[in-house]
């Protein structure tokens, strides 16, 4: 049976999970450089190992209320594959919970109803300790225009 390791993170009061295979690093309290007239949903840019990456405002993507300026922010660096190309992207999180392992069978399909999020971004739901965790599809979360090509 194939096991998958997930990283869980918090947005507002909800829990989300992403396959650790696509996570490169989690940065704490990263200074985000604001970019004037940036497109909606993009907070700015960060310097990640000498590469400049745009930062996606995850709360905005999931239609959650905006984070207050004083709150601590994490940045998750993700590597996604799209049309056979690898891209680096970063997205904010309010907090990172930890890592856990599951079999694929424990990830249930997304219910068609009762979801306040855009179902396109979600690949499944995990029921764990009385809590729902939404599994995020990184490649769907970001449009091609958000992505930045990685030199292979």
């Amino acid at each position: 049976m194939e096991n998958v390791t997930y990283l869980t993170f918090v947005l507002d009061n909800d829990l989300f999970a992403v396959d650790v295979k696509s996570v490169l690093e989690v940065l704490e309290q990263q200074h985000i450089t604001k970019v004037p007239k940036a497109p909606e949903g993009i907070l700015g840019i960060i310097n990640f190992r000498g590469e400049i990456l745009p930062v996606i405002d995850s709360r905005k993507r999931f239609n959650l209320p905006p984070r207050s300026e004083t709150e601590k922010v994490f940045v998750i660096i993700l590597e996604v594959e799209l049309n056979d190309k690898r891209y680096l992207i970063s997205a904010t999180a309010d907090g990172v919970k930890g890592v856990f392992e599951l079999t694929r069978e424990e990830v249930k399909p997304v219910p068609e109803m009762g979801l306040s999020y855009d179902a396109r971004f979600i690949s499944g739901v995990i029921h764990l300790d009385g809590q729902f965790i939404l599994v995020v599809k990184p490649s769907k979360l970001f449009s091609i225009s958000d992505l930045k090509s990685v030199v292979e």
Binding site: V35, P36, K37, A38, P39, I42, I45, E51, I52, L53, P54, I144, S145, D146, L147, K148, S149
Partner: peptide, 14 residues
């Protein structure tokens, strides 16, 4: 100079 990526293609002044 490093590219800032396609995300900012609407900001030609950068």
């Amino acid at each position: 100079v490093k590219p800032i990526g396609m995300a900012f293609s609407n900001q030609p002044f950068l």
